[in-house]
Amino acid sequence: MLCDICKKNEATIHIKEIHDGKVKSTNLCASCAAEKEKNGGLDALGFNLGEMLLNLGSLAAGKTEAAAIEPDSGKTVPVPAAVLPPCPVCGWTVEKIGQSGGRLGCPACYKAFTPLINEVLTRVQRGLVHIGKRPRNAAGGDVAVLTFEVGEAKRELQEHISREEYELAAVCRDRIRQLQARLDESRQGGGENGQH
């Protein structure tokens, strides 16, 4: 098997990762692996995001064949029907994003380039939906924050139970009850004073 980077030497280092249940393998020769180690760390995920976006962008523009994009897995990449227009807010194009190393122009770019972004996220992230913290002033405000806090507290409760820390679990259970009460209150529209 040839090295994924230089495509010349025999690959001796094989890295397998699991993403959303799918196995992705990277095969490198010793010198490319060492080179990778020197440049910005040994992350097996090392890739050029800008290049990836450009490839995906030219795919969208019909310039590249689908086979060139996903050679090893044979996965079919969805081909957007037309060339993606620039972001209506900042004016950045797919090409510009590619040139800036995969950085976007503004928050609205996430909407403007959704098909590309989803493709990138599928490759680099462990999921496609945020389940973490929310800002206090986000849309949905208190309900969202409290829902998150209840979720976290429940997770903590499970942890205490599995470690047989029953006193801490009891404290945690009380907190969940309080948070849940506040959440119910916020849901009924009394969200104004639900923050603290």
């Binding site: 995001l49 995969g102 950085r103 928050p107 996430y110 680099v124 992230q125 913290k133 800002p135 849309a139």
Partner: peptide
Amino acid sequence: YAFDEKLGYLTSCPTNVGT
């Protein structure tokens, strides 16, 4: 903050989006 219900905190690079 720039925050999206589905994607979380929006960042300049998609490798940082979410948390």
